[in-house]
């Protein structure tokens, strides 16, 4: 029930590549791919959770074989078609040529600075009250899965499912990706930073018993430890 992007803790990936990487973009097309993603995102047809889910829905073979910006391009093309901004006929057919006047939703060059500096927020005043306080013990739900949509987007990594942790911080009520990614509404709920010991996550594979890991987890990923 996992998807290929959920790789935290996986064995077999080998050394970290390009550790002294200092180029922002390595090719012109990478820069173009990033800019296309941002410009299309600004059309407002989807949200950040939906765009993440589009990349996660690449086949495992494509996900593993694509470079980073190829994944972005793949996810972008798929979500453009899902959103009816492009059609399969557009992709397959001969170029239609410049047709219409600019779409009113299109991001204008003079607005780029403002759009990238806009201080949005994923916090919402509504939604349930926080059930847990800092220092409370919690247990994550046994399966990292979206309970609204089968195979849907979720932000509980598989390695942290069914584990005991401790509330480290309250972040307030945040938009819930499991709902938002599928256009089921923002459904905000309390978000917590939850601390897990290395031993609780990895058992005998833990590197050092004193180390710990912190994940940001929504309230519906969390249970009372006795539950």
């Amino acid at each position: 029930m996992s998807r290929v992007h959920d790789m935290g803790g996986r064995f077999g990936d080998g050394p970290i590549p390009e550790k002294d990487d200092s180029e922002v973009f390595h090719t012109d097309w990478e820069a173009r791919a990033l800019a296309l993603n941002l410009a299309c995102g600004a059309l407002g047809a989807w949200n950040i959770d939906a765009s993440r889910h589009a990349r996660e829905c690449l086949t495992p073979k494509d996900y593993a074989g694509f470079t980073y910006y190829e994944k972005w391009l793949g996810g972008l093309t798929d979500i453009l078609v899902d959103s009816d901004l492009l059609t399969m006929e557009d992709l397959d057919g001969p170029p239609a040529g410049p047709a219409h006047s600019p779409d009113p939703r299109a991001l204008k060059p003079e607005n780029v600075d403002r759009a990238m500096h806009a201080q949005g927020s994923y916090m919402r005043p509504e939604g349930p009250q926080a059930k847990f306080r800092v220092g409370d013990p919690v247990r994550t739900v046994p399966h990292a899965q979206n309970t609204l949509v089968k195979g849907g987007h979720t932000r509980l990594p598989a390695y942290a499912a069914g584990r005991n942790g401790t509330i480290e911080r309250l972040h307030g009520n945040h938009v819930f990706p499991d709902s938002n990614a599928h256009f089921l509404g923002p459904a905000p709920q309390p978000l917590y930073a939850v601390r897990f010991t290395a031993h609780d996550l990895w058992g005998a594979d833990a590197e050092a018993s004193g180390d710990d890991m912190v994940l940001d987890l929504w309230q519906s990923y969390l249970l009372e430890p006795s539950a």
Partner: peptide
């Protein structure tokens, strides 16, 4: 995307 008026190449350069 440019043909459809959804993306302005100058916007991509600015990004």
């Amino acid at each position: 995307l440019v043909d459809k008026g959804l993306v302005d190449p100058a916007t991509l350069n600015a990004l």
